[in-house]
Design a protein around this nucleic acid. Structure first.
Length: 109
DNA sequence: GGATTGACGCTCC
DNA sequence: TGGAGCGCCAATC
């Protein structure tokens, strides 16, 4: 738990640092954390992060820009609503212009 | 303690 | 070019 605590902490930290109207991918965070091959851990961390209200998990999507985790939110399209609220265009659970609004933690951090 | 799952990603066919 | 399968690390059952 101690060792993973850092992993969680970093994951949450990065998630919180995501600028308004920007999004990132699990893989990007995983890479930043040094666990690039374990993007699943980031997703899993987000699951726990969902328990925390401070982590904008809705800004984190998979490498394709698809809102794979939206099903885990309260509403069916709550995640999409949140993103659209930030100016992010989401169609069919997929973020449009993903390349443009993609926020790379390594580039900023 | 062992097996399965998971909000992913990459490689192989 | 498209689809399917395997691998990762940690947690839960």
């Amino acid at each position: 738990m101690k060792k993973t605590e850092n992993f969680f902490e970093k994951t949450y930290e990065v998630a919180r640092l995501i600028p308004f109207g920007k999004v990132t991918s699990y893989g990007a965070i995983a890479t930043y954390l040094g666990t690039a091959r374990s993007a699943r851990m980031v997703g899993w961390a987000m699951n726990k992060a969902h328990d925390l209200e401070d982590v904008p998990a809705h800004r984190v999507v998979n490498r394709k820009g698809i809102l794979t985790g939206k099903h885990h939110f309260d509403g069916t399209n709550l995640m999409q609503q949140l993103l659209e609220n930030e100016g992010v265009v989401v169609v069919e659970n997929q973020i449009q212009n993903f390349d443009k609004i993609f926020w790379n933690p390594m580039d900023e951090l």
